[in-house]
């Protein structure tokens, strides 16, 4: 109990510092705040750059999650239902993008896009980068669920005359849905706060929210606004977390890794 308390304190003291600093009149977050102000909140609301960045982040996150859902799920089906040459390496390969440091993935992709295939960096390259390391979380969630489900339900369905597509639609998918939701949410979360791979794959014209924060945090005139954005994100994040809790009743904790 007390350990839990210490752990939560460890998590929440710095977060409260963020919230308090969003009212701190000092531009460099000096502590303790000598004066409080709502100036930064006002400035953040009138800042159109942050809203644009937010929409880029949402676009990148949703697209990457969509691709990860497609690729991760089909890979999970293949691995859970079939035996084939290369199965071991596929399951290793899918883990690789998340287990190699982001800076390596980042410069590898940047080098490939810029030097090798001459694809100019933009939203597309961000999505490719994010989807690559998001596949694994969808894959893991789906695979765990498929293994637990077994094949008996599908076989029963087929025995009763349903074809593959009907069985998938009526039996497999509903059973898989909550795991996919959990995996998708986690994938979205990973993409949403990703900065290292994004730094290397984003065209300088596209600012996702973390890039916007990175650019603005280092300019003292803008830095306090960043705290406002972060404080808002923490509060807004309650919504997806609540949703995931509701929807993944039987599934574990917003997803397995």
């Amino acid at each position: 109990m007390s350990l839990m308390g210490i752990g939560l304190a460890f998590i929440y003291v710095p977060l409260s510092v963020v919230v308090i600093n969003s009212f701190n009149s000092s531009r460099t977050f000096s502590w303790p705040p000598s004066r409080f102000t709502t100036e930064w909140w006002g400035k953040a609301i009138s800042n159109t750059g942050v809203r644009k960045a937010l929409s880029w982040s949402l676009a990148a996150g949703l697209s990457a999650t969509f691709i990860a859902l497609l690729l991760g799920t089909s890979l999970a089906f293949a691995v859970s239902r079939y035996n084939f040459f290369g199965k071991d390496i596929i399951s290793l390969l899918v883990v690789l993008p998340i287990s190699l440091p982001g800076v390596v993935t980042g410069i590898a992709l940047s080098n490939a896009f810029n030097q090798q295939i001459g694809l100019s960096t933009g939203l597309l390259t961000i999505v490719i980068g994010h989807a690559t390391f998001c596949i694994v979380v969808v894959y893991n969630n789906a695979l765990a669920r498929l293994r637990r489900m077994g094949t008996s339900l599908q076989e029963a369905s087929m025995d009763l005359g349903a074809n593959g597509i009907t069985t998938f639609r009526l039996i497999t998918l509903p059973n898989l849905a909550s795991a996919l939701f959990a995996g998708g949410l986690l994938a979205f979360g990973l993409s949403f706060d990703e900065i290292v791979v994004t730094t290397f794959t984003a065209g300088p014209g596209i600012q996702t929210l973390p890039i916007w924060i990175y650019n603005n945090l280092f300019r003292p005139s803008q830095a306090p606004i960043v705290n406002v954005v972060a404080a808002t994100l923490v509060v807004v994040s309650v919504i997806p977390i609540y949703l995931s809790q509701r929807l993944s009743q039987d599934s574990t904790s917003g997803g397995r890794f």
């Binding site: 000092s26 531009r27 460099t28 977050f29 000096s30 945090l217 280092f218 300019r219 003292p220 830095a223």
Partner: peptide, 12 residues
């Protein structure tokens, strides 16, 4: 390398 860190450090 970032001005914010530098200014904060001068202040403290």
């Amino acid at each position: 390398s970032d001005a914010l860190k530098h200014i904060a450090s001068l202040k403290s």
